[in-house]
Every structure is written in structure tokens, then in C-alpha cells.
């Protein structure tokens, strides 16, 4: 069971979310993210797991009419990042995200990784060089990319592009990293690379990952949440969820009886 001493990095409290038009996509979700752990979100498509993930960096603010209710509190400073006064940009500087499909910018490999730093006004060449190298190493892309840093990012393979996006997200030293089905567009070898990478990354930061693939959740995550129709059905450490789920619905989903 969950050890009560593990520090919490962030937690959602009674989080409700309404899409423009009134669709009630999240229903009172309360859940912690433990520091330096990987938390996986699983559930059938449309269950709200991506919606939940995208609340953490206020991605829904990009589209008019979406509405949050409840709190997502970040520790240790106890900031409710959903509060009106909190700028979504500030939130996104602390919490970075890797998307379902690799989405590099139409820039060089170097500039892709440096983007977050440039956005923060950092233009010192030495500093940028160091940070780009560090991030590329952290994303296990340095060896493949170090001789072609000025190449267009589109010239990389799909798996490399996704690692580039991880490097991009890593370069700004985020506290939390969100992964929205990061391997769904990749082949098995690239997928294995990314999973390995995530396990290494958790030394440094906290990870929330949405996945369609239950084996993946079982392989990489420390904690797993099962969501269904916008509700959090069950949350526990991954071992428990996959071996002794307390709810019938969770078991049905995990054993493939439905979903």
C-alpha cells in the first residue's frame, strides 16, 4: 500500500472540468502525484484521462469556454495552479509536457531544445550550449544528434523526434513532466527507449503519464489511476492495481473484458 511518508509534489482536489458547451468531462477527481514517482492514468478512450493531464499545465486555457472547478495544488509552495490569479504561463514554466504525436518546431535540433530557454529570455550562448547538451543527454539523444545540431528537426525519425520533444521539455528544469500517450505514434523499439528514459527521468522530477497501453503502465509507473467516464474509479500503487484491484470495473478493464 501507499507509504504515507512519500512526499506529494502536486494533488488535485475535487477537480471538475467542463468543456465549452457544457460537457462535464471530469467529475470531482482527487488524486496525488508523489514526488519523483511516475503516476500512470489508464482507462478507455474518452474517459477523461487526457483532459485531466491537460489541466496540470492549463492547456485548456487555449480554447475559449472551458471551465475548471476545484484545485490542483503544487507543493511545496501550496500554489493552486487553477486559481484565477495564477498565470498559466507561470504554470507551464514549472510543468512541461510531451505530446501524443511528436511536435517539433520547424527549427534546427538545437533551437528546438533551446526554445524554452529563449522564451524565458535566455540568450547567453555558453549557457544555452550547456543546457542543450545536458537536455539532449538527459533525453538519450546526444550521441545521435551531437554532430547535426543545426539540422532541421523534421529530418529526425519519429522516435528521435519524440526524444527531442522530451529534451525540449527537459531543458527548462521542470518540476513535473506530463506525458500524453507519448509512445502511441512510435514503433516498439522507440517505445522501449522512451519508457527507459522515463524511468531515468524520475530521479529528477515527477511524472504523470497517460497511456492506452496497460503493459506500459505496469512496466513504468509507480502509481496507477483508473478513470472511467470522467471519474477516478481507483487509485493505488501500480502493483496493487494490477494484481489485486479493489473494484470489479478496474479488474474487468485490466483483464481486457472491456475497454
Amino acid at each position: 500500500m501507499i507509504k504515507p511518508t512519500t512526499p506529494i509534489k502536486a494533488e488535485s482536489r475535487n477537480l471538475n472540468f467542463f468543456y465549452n458547451g457544457g460537457n462535464h468531462a471530469l467529475k470531482s477527481v482527487s488524486m496525488p502525484l508523489y514526488e519523483n514517482k511516475i503516476t500512470a492514468l489508464i482507462g478507455p478512450s474518452g474517459c477523461g484521462k487526457s483532459t485531466f493531464l491537460r489541466c496540470f499545465n492549463r492547456m485548456h486555457d487555449l480554447y475559449p469556454g472551458n471551465k475548471y472547478q476545484g484545485e490542483i495544488v503544487m507543493h511545496p509552495d501550496n500554489t493552486n495552479i487553477l486559481e484565477q490569479g495564477v498565470d498559466p504561463i507561470e504554470v507551464r514554466m514549472r510543468i512541461s509536457m510531451v505530446f501524443q504525436k511528436p511536435n517539433p518546431f520547424p527549427k534546427s535540433i538545437y533551437e528546438n531544445v533551446a526554445y524554452g530557454l529563449r522564451v524565458r529570455g535566455e540568450n547567453n550562448k555558453r549557457m544555452l550550449d550547456d543546457k542543450v547538451e545536458e537536455a539532449l543527454k538527459g533525453a538519450a539523444l546526444w550521441n545521435e544528434a551531437k554532430d547535426r545540431l543545426q539540422d532541421l528537426a523534421f529530418n529526425l525519425s519519429g522516435g528521435q523526434q519524440q526524444r527531442l520533444c522530451i529534451a525540449r521539455a527537459l531543458a527548462t528544469d521542470p518540476e513535473i513532466m506530463l506525458f500524453d500517450e507519448p509512445t502511441s505514434a512510435l514503433d516498439p523499439i522507440a517505445t522501449a527507449n522512451i519508457e527507459e528514459l522515463m524511468s531515468e527521468l524520475k530521479q529528477k522530477l515527477t511524472i504523470l503519464v497517460v497511456t492506452h497501453n496497460m503493459q506500459q503502465a505496469a512496466r513504468v509507473s509507480d502509481y496507477t489511476a483508473y478513470m472511467y467516464l470522467g471519474e477516478l474509479m481507483e487509485y493505488d500503487d501500480t502493483n496493487t492495481i494490477f494484481t489485486r484491484p479493489s473494484r470489479k470495473e478496474t479488474e474487468d478493464y485490466i483483464t481486457g473484458k472491456f475497454g
Binding site: 487555449l62 507551464r92 518546431f105 522564451v119
Partner: peptide, 17 residues
């Protein structure tokens, strides 16, 4: 594509950036 904009916003960029 919107995904490219999202990528930028997710890094904490402003609209102008």
C-alpha cells in the same frame, strides 16, 4: 497544425512568442 502551437504554449511561451 494546432499541435505545434500547443507545443510552444506548453513551454510557457506567450501568444506573441
Amino acid at each position: 497544425p494546432m499541435s505545434m502551437r500547443e507545443g510552444s504554449y506548453a513551454m510557457g511561451a506567450t501568444r506573441f512568442q
